[in-house]
């Protein structure tokens, strides 16, 4: 019977569990951010921590992002392992200097003498009409700027394993979780994100993509919520006899170009699905990894299903028009194969 024993977690629970387990064994780990204490994080990912670890290690901050991001960098360089949260990735504008000019560069500037072991958690994504300052992904922005590792889980298993790896990492890691995958009912959670998650410690290696569905006709490469759109599209394509492979990037930095290339070498077709803006971002980079390497494997020009280059509109009808979805992926494939 023990093989039927399972423990499904939402991503919110998986993140909180990883942090709690790590905090029990390493006193240097602490958490700070807005509303992460009594409230347990707007997206539930710090639920239960203040009850167990108290206000000394679970610190609600003032709305002073430049100060507490900078403090995280300083604490990390000084021997602690801070986990710092800013609840929406959209808010980073107010403190970006501490992130891309400081957190991300100090290891390099010091010639490797300084370590910056910090994790920066932030939520991404829209689809629930929260408007253009509460719905962005900006994955590409973080991935573009050198010096920070970037991860974005699509399910609870990866969420826990990536969090463990991120906390242990001596370089800064930006941990981007999608609101629609958190398991918060009020955001209409994607079910596929709540999966079996071991209680014991394990890591998912930062920089390793995962082939979450094997196929032979097209590679659909995505991250976060896009993986679930891709899986739905793959199921739909299967009905018309098309075998789609789905690659979950899981990490953007480092980017697992080998897995992408191997997949496209097999299928000959590439669709990148990205909820971030279309231009100058993840989708272009994934395509470049293939075409720079070996153009001869391609049976069709690579395509992308991404958010158009406009701020995210509030009205549902307009936002949904812009967002990637399974139908758009299927239609894109049909055009490619025609």
């Amino acid at each position: 019977m023990s093989d039927t024993k399972e423990r499904k977690l939402t991503i919110a629970r998986a993140m909180a569990e990883s942090v709690a387990q790590y905090m029990r064994k390493d006193e240097k780990v602490f958490v700070m951010g807005e509303d992460i204490g009594v409230l347990g994080g707007v997206y539930g990912n710090t639920r239960g921590l203040i009850e167990e670890f108290g206000e000394e290690r679970i610190r609600d901050t003032p709305i002073s992002e430049t100060a507490f991001m900078g403090a995280a960098v300083g604490a990390a360089q000084n021997g602690m392992r801070p986990i710092v949260e800013l609840m929406f990735v959209d808010f980073f504008g107010v403190c970006f200097d501490q992130i891309y000019n400081n957190m991300a560069k100090n290891i390099y500037f010091s010639g490797g003498n300084v370590k910056v072991p910090m994790v920066l958690m932030t939520s991404t994504g829209g689809g629930y009409s929260d408007g253009g300052q509460h719905s962005q992904c900006v994955y590409g922005t973080f991935a573009h700027l050198p010096g920070m590792k970037v991860v974005a889980p699509s399910n609870a298993y990866d969420a826990k394993g990536l969090m463990n790896a991120a906390i242990r990492e001596d370089s800064p890691v930006v941990y981007m979780y999608h609101k629609g995958l958190q398991g918060m009912g009020w955001l209409g959670t994607e079910r596929g994100a709540t999966v079996n998650t071991p209680e014991e410690y394990y890591e998912v290696e930062i920089g390793k993509a995962s082939v979450v569905r094997e196929g032979t006709d097209v590679s659909i490469v995505s991250l976060g919520m896009g993986v679930h759109h891709a899986l739905k599209a793959a199921a739909e394509l299967e009905e018309s006899g098309v075998s789609a492979e789905v690659v979950d990037l899981r990490s953007l930095v480092p980017l697992d170009r080998d897995t992408i290339r191997a997949s496209v070498a097999k299928t000959g077709r590439l669709i990148v699905v990205d909820e971030d803006y279309h231009s100058f971002g993840v989708s272009g980079e994934v395509i470049a990894s293939v075409v720079e390497h070996d153009i001869s494997v391609l049976k069709a020009a690579p395509q992308r299903v991404a958010f158009p280059d406009v701020p995210i509109p509030y009205a549902k009808i307009m936002e949904q028009f812009c967002l990637p979805n399974a139908d758009k992926i299927v239609a894109t494939y049909k055009k490619m194969a025609a």
């Binding site: 024993k5 423990r7 499904k8 398991g183 918060m184 009912g185 079910r191 709540t194």
Partner: peptide, 13 residues
Amino acid sequence: GVITSWLVSDGAT
């Protein structure tokens, strides 16, 4: 209320 997540599958121990 509404069931938002089952944290076990049908048939699990």
